[in-house]
Amino acid sequence: MTHPTTHTLDAPGATLSYEVHGSGPVLLMVGHPMTADGFRALADQFPDRTVVLHDPRGTGGSPMPDPTQPPDVDVLAEDLSRVLAAVGQGPADVFGSSGGAITALALAAAHPDQVRTVVAHEPPLVEHLADADAVRAQLAEVAATHREHGAGAAMGAFAAVAGFALPEPAPDAPPPPAPSEADQRAMARMLLGIESVCTYRLDAAALPPGRVRIGVGAWSGEQVLTGRTSRAEAAHVGVPLVEFPGGHGGFVTEQGGDAVAFAAVLRGLLE
């Protein structure tokens, strides 16, 4: 892939950073709170595309004057709209993962003219779960833990709610490195948005017909919250559920993912 160019643009309440790689039809990749860094291995699998990577506001190279302001999905979707307008080249394919999958769906509902195909990988939308009330209460407890006891305690509480198994360190293992400043910012954005993002109410009727795909990781069974939410959202939108390799980070090597295998499934959905 050619050397990327990095750009910034001003938006109300933030400066937005994005990268443009290669040439060809536009493919935007986005997460939340994951920054552009987490998508580089996947982007490398699409040398025939103009791949756009974006740091959501408050993360990476997209600073906010008030980083304590909780994430707002509609605002994040408008940010994506601004980035796509700046890149140009007409409607784009959009791949969103985790919180970015929610943003991608909101973009498609608000600006269907800007998207060709939208692939939402493991959107953690809880509103259509059978036990949505109970899960909302659990997320509220995570948010309260963050306010009262800090990010470390809140991340432990979140892992329990999400069903993500944390590996036990070996007895002789050295202590893990302290989170980087960028990791701490991303963690804060996730915890600040644990309620506002995950309880977002998507207007499914506004989604462009035939242009939305919802995916789930093969490892994300009924014990993993995002496995459950992906199935529920696909049923709500009325589309088949697409299975991707791996789990929630199926394209991230550090999370046990395989970018090559993941890209093969994604490419098939975009052709």
Rank of each mutant, 00 (worst) to 15 (best):
P25V: 06
C198K: 15
A77L: 00
Q184K: 14
G221V: 05
V224R: 06
E222Q: 15
T226C: 13
G215C: 14
R267S: 12
L16F: 10
T35K: 01
L139K: 00
A130K: 08
A160K: 13
Q138D: 14
A259S: 12
C198S: 13
A263F: 03
G246M: 04
L53Q: 05
D258G: 03
L129T: 07
L129C: 07
G96N: 04
V242N: 00
P179K: 03
E254A: 15
Q69W: 11
L80H: 02
A182W: 12
V126D: 09
A132N: 01
A120W: 02
L28T: 01
A86H: 07
G58N: 09
M190R: 14
V242Y: 02
M187S: 15
C198G: 13
A206L: 04
L105N: 08
A77F: 03
L266K: 02
E233Y: 11
I214F: 06
A182K: 10
A235G: 00
F95V: 13
G257K: 07
H236L: 14
M187F: 15
V83C: 00
A232F: 01
A109E: 10
G163Q: 03
T6V: 15
D93Q: 10
T145Q: 07
L27E: 02
S196G: 08
V135P: 05
A173W: 00
D55Q: 00
M29K: 01
D55F: 01
E233M: 15
G38Y: 14
D55P: 00
A137W: 00
A85F: 05
P63A: 10
G221D: 09
P71K: 02
R40T: 11
V212A: 00
Q89W: 12
G250I: 02
P176D: 08
A259I: 11
L166D: 10
T35M: 05
L192H: 07
V242P: 00
V51S: 09
R185Q: 15
H21T: 11
T8F: 00
A41S: 13
F46L: 09
E122D: 07
R213A: 08
G193F: 04
G249L: 10
A144D: 15
E195K: 05
T226G: 03
E78M: 07
F46P: 01
A205R: 12
G238E: 01
I194N: 07
A85S: 13
M190F: 13
V237F: 05
L27V: 01
L269F: 04
R185H: 10
V197E: 09
L125Y: 03
V73L: 08
D113M: 05
V142E: 05
V197C: 02
L28M: 07
V51G: 06
D74F: 04
A153K: 12
S81Y: 15
D113N: 12
P70L: 04
P245H: 03
A14Q: 09
A170I: 06
P67M: 03
Q114K: 08
D172G: 08
V142M: 05
E78Q: 14
R201N: 01
F251S: 11
M187D: 14
Q223V: 11
P171T: 09
S23D: 13
P175I: 11
D55A: 03
L269W: 05
H7T: 06
S196P: 07
G22R: 02
G90S: 11
A186T: 05
A109H: 03
P209Y: 04
G99D: 08
T229F: 02
V52E: 00
H128A: 13
P67W: 06
